[in-house]
Write a protein that binds this DNA or RNA. Structure first.
Lengths: 403, 403
DNA sequence: TTGAATTTGTTTTTTTAATTAACTAACATA
DNA sequence: TATGTTAGTTAATTAAAAAAACAAATTCAA
């Protein structure tokens, strides 16, 4: 994604310059604080070239000089620090019924948060909510805005910034980027929420170990995976790579709206969880959820999680069932693609080991034995902000070439 | 693969130059014959820059001036033609028991062929056969050799040119590239045979339509897939992406040497085919293969193919069975990765539609309905030379940046 | 038939970004 | 205090693309 030069284009001096500028800024971002001399050693550019680029970065206020370092002999180096508050960015997560937005600094640290409940609004009304969110955040910005990053559910064409289809929002072929770019005169980037979550995982966590490929499965109301290959989001031919919600995991399972029986989403999402728990709790007075169901309340995943944390033993088997279906769906991909790093995110991830263990077992059971001990399946540690972080990564990557 | 500049390195003028030189050569290769003026328009480089690079290419004999073109007005342009016979390359296919090699020109046209039957040789003895093949081809070369490209079975680390493991050849951690490079003083490139077949499919056929992703499943004695993502071979974390031979497709199936039951390879390879046909033919006097089996002969896939072409109706159901297992294994990957273009190659591909139809049915049956009509499953038209072509592509790509 | 217009390809000049080399600054140490 | 070392800047050099100017070969129109 950080490519300045594509293989099917001519190369120019300007691209060389741009590349090196991004490269240097990235190094400062990563090794903050660092001296010009160290940058020269690290990048293999000359000190003269580094000085030249750094002057420009100082001019743009992207970095600052923050004092001298002590070394044994010689002139002490001037330390440069990445100016994480030089710009701000707006990030949105439209994946759930509660639209969430945040104002962030250049390190993806949240400065402000806003939420708007969709309350069933769809189509253009939902777009209005997006605009309202951005306006609120824009007002609170205290620094020039670098851009807007958005994670939306459904199939997204990220190059044009078009939401091809988001069923819950009733969006089809919605040119959201152009729409917002015109409205706010800021660069706008969008991608599917699970794809962004995977990008966040890669850039804010896994990237450190030289990992270049990973799959992140986001399990919430819907189920979707984000795939990182070679350090970039893999979109697929129709931009719906990772849309595993409708993989059939049980041909005898419940009928899905998509026309198939036993889709992963009908068997393992939080909705499926709530349905199954309702039944079990209704017929099981020992369950802590029994009373709730009796009172005609719909079970939320929060309530189920709370019951689970309170050691309600009726929850575990249902989580396990979800985990096995998830693991079954993942095994094929992980095996065939030879991917070693798998992460689980989304609201379901809060169940932790209870969900993770059956996933692990099922993946291992179906994998080529020689490869099993290389597979690492983990709960993502990035929590509820993972999509916002991914959206930030998108903006930071395109605008500055960092992260 | 054609990247001169990586995101984690500084950019230099030399890289710009190298990039543009490859870019121009590639254009000449693709649009042969073409004038300097047209190249300038196509690449957006100035005529002066084009002239400069073209002089170097003429100097190296990579292109020739081949006369003038007629246009309406103005000075007639001088046509440049790619010199496909300026260099030659050696390509090897070690995937079957019959090692095959060829001498090719720069367009992947076969000039000479050699074969050596392994006759059960393994380990170092098999390496000797590789060397013998190359020596034969080297002797017949009439032009400077550009390099050696090799497709081997098993898991291959292509950056170091190490065969991590090839069970049939009893090779483990074999540094084949260094070994051959020292022996022949030529650049050597290797990769897994199915991965190379996929590369060949991409570069010599599908690339024309702007396709950037494809999966090619090679079904022969073994079963392996090659995966092209974004125009490049996707290797996976352990270089074994596409090793789908040991995906479990029937938990109640035959025990495999890998320890699992009902691996794809035990259920759908030509070996599985031969075993199943033997049984059926033995108990079925109407089969054309009945006599052969009666005589104690082992059925070859050639014999089965011949029987099939002779309208032996006992063959079709067995092929169909293989096809369904193959389709089942492919559906998950194709769906989850949103890949539209799937090719079947290998000796089993000779059964054509008899194999293709059940694969199609099974993939469609298991895929998300909205995506089905976008999926294209075809038998590769590249035939038996597909691995040799892939090996050539590897060399051409790394050495010249073309194809 | 001649000259204007057009297109190609080369040559010359200019620009730009990196490198090289030389230099100044600031420190430790002997 | 002199010397060596490292940091950072400045000036000169180099390389590659772009811009501009030009020469060559053709068509077309008067």
């Amino acid at each position: 994604m950080n490519k300045v030069i594509s293989a099917s284009q001519k190369a120019t001096r300007e691209q060389t310059k741009e590349h090196n500028k991004r490269f240097i800024l990235k190094m400062i971002y990563e090794r903050d604080p660092i001296s010009r001399a160290d940058l020269a050693r690290l990048t293999k550019l000359t000190r003269a070239s580094i000085s030249n680029v750094v002057s420009a970065l100082l001019e743009e206020d992207m970095v600052s000089e923050v004092g001298l370092a002590k070394k044994s002999v010689g002139k002490p180096p001037t330390l440069l620090s990445f100016n994480k508050d030089a710009r701000q960015l707006i990030t949105l997560d439209l994946a759930s019924d509660m639209f969430r937005g945040s104002l962030m600094n250049l390190r993806g640290e949240v400065l402000e948060r806003v939420k708007i409940s969709l309350g069933g609004r769809r189509g253009p009304a939902a777009v209005e909510q997006v605009i309202a969110l951005i306006e609120q955040l824009q007002e609170r910005a205290t620094q020039p805005l670098l851009g807007i990053g958005i994670g939306t559910p459904g199939v997204v064409e990220p190059y044009q910034g078009v939401v091809k289809s988001a069923i819950n929002l009733n969006w089809t072929e919605l040119p959201l980027r152009d729409l917002l770019q015109e409205r706010f005169s800021l660069p706008v980037y969008l991608a599917n929420d699970a794809q962004l979550a995977a990008l966040a995982q890669f850039l804010f966590s896994s990237n450190k170990d030289g990992i270049q490929n990973l799959i992140l499965v986001k399990v919430g109301r819907g189920i979707g995976a984000g795939i990182i290959f070679g350090g970039e989001i893999f979109f697929g031919d129709g931009f719906s790579a990772g849309e595993i919600g409708h993989v059939v995991v049980d041909p005898n399972g419940k009928l899905c709206t998509c026309g198939h029986n036993g889709c992963l989403e009908t068997m393992a999402s939080t909705r499926a969880l709530a349905e199954q728990m309702s039944q079990i709790a209704a017929s099981n007075p020992s369950s802590r959820l029994h009373q709730m169901v009796r009172d005609g309340e719909t079970l939320t995943s929060n309530a189920i999680l709370q019951a689970h944390l309170d050691r309600d033993f009726t929850v575990q088997p249902v989580i396990e069932r979800s985990g096995r279906f998830l693991g079954g769906a993942m095994a094929h991909i992980v095996g065939a693609m030879n991917i070693r790093h798998i992460y689980i995110a989304g609201s379901m991830a809060r169940f932790g080991d209870a969900l993770l263990e059956p996933i692990r077992q099922e993946v291992f059971r179906r994998s080529y034995p020689a490869l099993i001990n290389q597979i690492e399946i983990k709960i993502s540690e990035l929590g509820a902000d993972i999509v916002l972080l991914g959206a930030a990564a998108l903006v930071l990557n395109f605008e500055l070439g960092i992260v």
